[in-house]
Write a protein that binds this DNA or RNA. Sequence first.
RNA 1: GGGAACAUGGCCAAGUGGUAAGGCAGAGGAUUGCAAAUCCUUUACCCCCGGUUCGAAUCCGGGUGUUCCCUCCA
Length: 482
Amino acid sequence: MSLVIYNTQTRQKETFTPIEPGTVKMYCCGVTVYDHCHLGHARSYITWDTARRYLIWRGYDVQYVQNFTDIDDKILNRAIAEDCTMAEVSETYIASYFEDLRRLNVKDADDYPRVTDHIPQICDLIQTLIDRDLAYASGGDVYYAVQKFPGYGKLSGRSEDQMQSGASGRVDAGSGEPKKRHPFDFALWKAAKPGEPFWESPWGQGRPGWHIECSAMIRSRLGDSIDIHGGGGDLVFPHHENEIAQSEGATGKPLATYWAHNGMVRVNGEKMSKSLGNFTTIRDLLETVEPMVIRLFILQAQYRKPLDFTDEAIASATSGWQTFNDGLTFGDRFGATLGWALDASATVEPLPEVVDKFQTAMDDDFNSSAALAILFELAKDLRRAGNLLVHGEALTTPVDELRHQWTTLVELAGVLGLVATSTTATAGDEGLTDAAIEALIAQRQQARADRNFAESDRIRDELKAQGITLIDKPDGTVFVRD
RNA sequence: GGGAACAUGGCCAAGUGGUAAGGCAGAGGAUUGCAAAUCCUUUACCCCCGGUUCGAAUCCGGGUGUUCCCUCCA
């Protein structure tokens, strides 16, 4: 069995073969740090975090790099608006990024290069492009001469005349940028306007254009060619197309073997985006939704397809997560009862046929939706077993089998970054003690014996309101906390 | 106008030639004083029209619809 990945450049799934056997160099375009991350960012980084986790689980040595773009007009505008420096804006939102994405159990990248730390590398790369006659300086700016790069358009699947004919007047209106020789040329370096922050360069004081930083940082941190380049689908053109032009123009080598792009999050049928203003930030969402619910919501869809963000979808994921989490916590809740030596659980082997099915699913372009279907079957089995135990009924699955199921579920869910939500609603936090609950149960039993069902239901509702569910069994009543 | 994709049950969503995974919601039954708790059972000819094939949700052609990109964007 081998892993296949959908390659945007060829528009088909391809067998994954790393440049260097056993090693995967992976880069994902990070955020421009001028605001809090929204659900669209969450989808992107959860998607590539999951791909990364899977590759590691598959035995690859993965080097995962994700940048912070900390030089940009929007950061500058925000700095002006808030009367502070670009660096202060960047620091604020980099901290915000970590806070939010870590809560979603997105593993830290191996490296988080920043544009401000790579000005020399950027200048070197620009100089190389000028030397190769692929770029030209013009009035303090430097532009990439798109027509000089033969492969331009190969990623996004468009040719120059198509872009020309399709530009619908926008491009040749061109009065705005007289320094360009050709309308499609894009800036590698932009001269600083008076009062703007700048860095010194051979072309004068200025700052890098939008696309060049990724080319420079990939080269600096991972080398000329990497295995997987990921990012949001909205970056295919022009950002990634331009990265290819810059990097391959300079090195003559392929920048990435596989170009992988995640689909957009939609709201009411429209893309969630900052410019449309229809975004929900991760931190706002986390006010009311558990992190793992968001992760499950995202992973239940195939990563390349659009994903609609609706209240109903979140509610569905919330219920789904309860089931899933019941499975994940099974061993913690019942292992001792069942006589498992939990500290020795590492010796329990995952079920090979389940592992096999999981791998087959994930090998097919990280099909987390199909993989989850397999895990849900385990989770449901375990949940049922747990319910049977709580209700004092006989198990229908051998205890040893349950233990293997649980081990398998925990391991494979972990590959998807799904981890049990701790059930630390321990007695006495603020709620009732076990003894107090037992006393109420006794009261209710008496009421039931007296056929005073109004009173008995009142007690039941009162406990329910505090997250305690009563379960009537033939030989008495027990309770469980949510 | 140009480029790229997608279209599966009430909702979400797998499945890329051999009689439709999974989640959510719903229904029926069991249990119960009742029950939102629990257990069991259960719900699809895959946008439309042609074509290829012994056989297609799956391949091809033509429609229709939706989205993304072409401007900052995960």
